[in-house]
């Protein structure tokens, strides 16, 4: 269940839950003055906490490492397609708003929407 490197520009090592060494795929795009951070779950390659469970802590670590103001970003979590027979491992993107309540925190985007908002 290897994740294609098409999903990220670099692998970002972060401190997960209880400081567990963890890793995710990271892509940062600046489009029309907006900064988009896309983190990708790497499944077996990630020895620690998932990007979803790491949540806000992961965003803070990325912004600190990259010198980005956390107030200026749009944050997207990616479940990559792993060519699994199981639909649970199909590609999915979620825009995350950590200030929203649980019900409204995640908004699923389709690829077309992703292309539209990011101009990719």
């Amino acid at each position: 269940m290897e994740v294609s490197s098409d999903y990220y520009d670099e692998k970002f090592i972060f401190k997960g839950e209880w400081d567990m060494p963890s890793v995710c795929g990271l892509m940062i795009r600046n489009v029309k003055g907006k900064t988009y951070i896309i983190v990708t779950e790497l499944y077996q390659e990630n020895p620690g906490t998932s990007v979803t469970y790491a949540g806000r802590s992961l965003v803070e670590q990325i912004c600190e490492a990259k010198g980005i103001d956390i107030e200026d970003i749009t944050y997207i979590e990616c479940n990559p397609d792993t060519n699994s027979k199981l639909s649970f491992y199909d590609e999915k993107f979620f825009q995350v708003d950590f200030d929203a309540d649980l019900e409204h925190r995640y908004r699923q985007l389709d690829r077309a929407e992703l292309i539209k908002i990011m101009g990719l």
Binding site: E17, Y43, F88, R105
Partner: peptide, 14 residues
């Protein structure tokens, strides 16, 4: 169960 993919998926989907 926490720390499973099913937790992440269902949590995100509310």
């Amino acid at each position: 169960f926490p720390h499973t993919k099913v937790y992440d998926d269902l949590l995100r989907q509310g």
